[in-house]
Design a protein around this nucleic acid. Structure first.
Lengths: 145, 145
DNA sequence: TTCCTTGCAAACGATTTGCATTGGA
DNA sequence: TCCAATGCAAATCGTTTGCAAGGAA
């Protein structure tokens, strides 16, 4: 999967005026492979230590600034990152209370747009300017059941 | 508001075999007053330092074990707590990207139950045993707009 | 007395930052 | 060349824990 996504990231980073170096490419690739958000240390491990933890953090900060990845805050003060919506598509999360794993899910089209309207409506009433939403379903995954 | 909720907490802690001391009462009261989840240090401040931070943490741990409060993970590795659903009622959150504040909102009855069905349906298909869900709407609050 | 609770300070773990070095355009 | 990027170590910051003192049953 060196394709479209890779190009888009390349372009976005160029626009942001930063380099798309080897280390950064590896982090993006690891995130692209993953089926859910990953933390800095998970990325560090996934890359077999080829990118030091501090560099992973800096890379994630750069990527977040450029709008390439988005943070996701989970238990025990861990922050996990995933490809931004415009790259990975809009989706929601199943969070396992047993093992802490996070899995992506998509809602059926109809329900998704209905939910969007609802969100806009309710939030507007509270004087809130909506920029996005995320549904988090908690429970036990197949393995932890 | 010394009423029902207070009684329920009292009972729950008694069942858990722990004391409902002054410090713990103050933490619960502060949470009850709040319109959204609060972190340990926010509680510490809100109580004008009358409860040391470490005690706030311990209190929150006890309350969580007893099922009186529930954690909510937010930006910058902060964990905020709020009264559990069975005490505060089911609701969702508006998260301000500007100031980080979290505000509670409720969905209209109809949409809420529809959302519940949807969640059960989609998650079940993924072999996931659902225990709850939470919708997080991100954007800018009135003050930060 | 006997536990549970509390406070302070030290310990921890995730994340950030200073600084000297490396590497790409 | 020149500035962004990197690696390491030290510094931060939220949170946890050890231990001795305080309190209620």
């Amino acid at each position: 999967m060196v394709s479209i996504q890779e190009r888009q990231v390349e372009e976005r980073l160029a626009d942001a005026g930063v380099r798309y170096t080897g280390g950064r490419r590896r982090v993006v690739a690891a995130l692209g492979r993953s089926g859910g958000p990953m933390s800095a240390s998970e990325l560090h491990e996934s890359l077999r230590g080829s990118v030091p933890v501090s560099s992973v953090y800096r890379t994630l900060a750069v990527l977040e600034d450029a709008g390439v990845v988005e943070p996701h805050h989970s238990a025990k003060g861990l922050t996990r990152y995933e490809m931004a919506e415009w790259l990975a598509g809009h989706h929601h999360h199943l969070v396992c209370q047993g093992c802490g794993a996070v899995e992506d899910i998509e809602l059926p089209e109809g329900l998704e747009s209905q939910l969007e309207n609802l969100v806009r409506d309710v939030s507007g009433r509270a004087g809130f300017r909506v920029s996005g939403h995320s549904l988090e379903v908690v429970g036990l995954c197949r393995r932890c059941t």
